[in-house]
Nucleic acid binder design. Structure first.
Lengths: 215, 215
DNA sequence: GTCTATAACTTGATAGAC
DNA sequence: GTCTATCAAGTTATAGAC
């Protein structure tokens, strides 16, 4: 069949998401996808290249959309600084939506995205470099939206925000301390709104407002 | 020598932090620690048990401190609801400080903590279960500190907050879009203040305040 | 408690017939 | 493009001498 390649991608996506990169063996993928031993090395030439393919398949279009969304909101602002919420939405919404709707991938890729966001070193820098131009654009927009925040503080806020976003993508916890509400059955648009609200407030929060206290 | 055990723990901590659990082989640990092949299986009985030991060595005391700090701030509040910032600090500060100061572990364990927080499934649930009682206590305190936030919304906010905290622990990014400021050379108390400010604001942010907008 | 040796298995990757 | 067969290396874990 000609969809062998796709079946490998789908299965790899699922297993990488579930067990991580080094936690998933090519043989596990081969077995679950019910393809031939050599197929993986035929279509992709290595395990690493397979991960890249899995990753870029969904990431590249989402990044495209992010840029468009950012440009659109910057144009709408005219010469003024863009609204913080808009910048954050431009970054978060395309990836999140993409990770929700595609008939097949859905939750699975979201899980994988969370893992990759969080680990940061699972992808070789070559792939990460595909993100840098986009991230740089967002860094500028953020700086304009938050002109009073010094750069090194902004760095940390972005850092925290990336972590929160990654977790939003993952949507699973083993700690059943609140009894309910997994990503599986939750309204993803509502989650998005909550995430944007959370991030915006966090980014704006003045650090100096934290009162001094005794240890 | 009698510090063989400790040397294994230290090395394992470092390598798990750098490459993840399945990305680290026992042989790599054995080699770097310069101990004998069989030593790991003698002191710990499996790779998994070794990870648990690495994890609990620093985690158990920190969790103890978290509980104490929470109780202290609840007592200070008398019958009233505890202050949000205090609850967050009680959760974040002990682990973060512990991960900063111990002469040896320092940055390394922080990196590992970030990884484990983010992955969530690297530790077997048996170990995770050691956390549940503490987390449940914090869930109650949070609910009291934020009485107007419905439970399922609170669940998500905690979810986001855990992600941001995990990222704060990791403190490394490959995306050099802001040119500077790594965890390595940053003032950790300042990071803590920033994190607490970020989380508090995010937790308090009313979701309904996010204005409607066209996609 | 420390060591060497090795068992028992899984890994990523390839060669070459069809 | 698909298959089987297999390699070389690396893996966790154990047995048993000292």
């Amino acid at each position: 069949m000609t969809d062998t390649r796709e079946r490998i991608l789908d299965t790899a996506e699922r297993l990488f998401a579930a067990h991580g990169y080094s936690g998933t063996s090519l043989r596990a993928i081969i077995t679950e996808a019910e393809v031939n031993q050599a197929a993986v090395h035929y279509y992709f030439r290595s395990k690493e290249a397979l991960l890249e393919a899995v990753f870029l398949r969904r990431t590249e279009p989402a990044n495209q959309e992010r840029m468009e969304m950012l440009e659109r909101c910057e144009r709408a602002a005219g010469g003024n600084a863009p609204e913080l919420e808009d910048v954050i939405e431009a970054f978060v919404v395309p990836a999140f939506r993409a990770a929700c709707d595609p008939g097949k991938g859905g939750l699975v890729f979201r899980e994988l995205m969370g893992r990759l966001y969080a680990e940061g070193d699972m992808l070789p820098r070559i792939v990460a470099s595909k993100f840098v131009p986009m991230l740089a654009r967002f860094a500028v927009a953020l700086t304009r939206a938050l002109p009073d925040v010094p750069q090194d503080e902004l760095f940390w806020k972005v850092h925290f925000a990336m972590g929160a976003t990654a977790q939003a993508f993952r949507g699973k916890t083993d700690w059943q301390v609140f009894d309910r509400a997994r990503l599986d059955n939750a309204d993803s648009e509502l989650i998005l709104r909550r995430l944007v609200a959370f991030l915006s407030a966090g980014m704006r929060a003045p650090v100096t407002a934290v009162r001094e206290r005794e240890k």
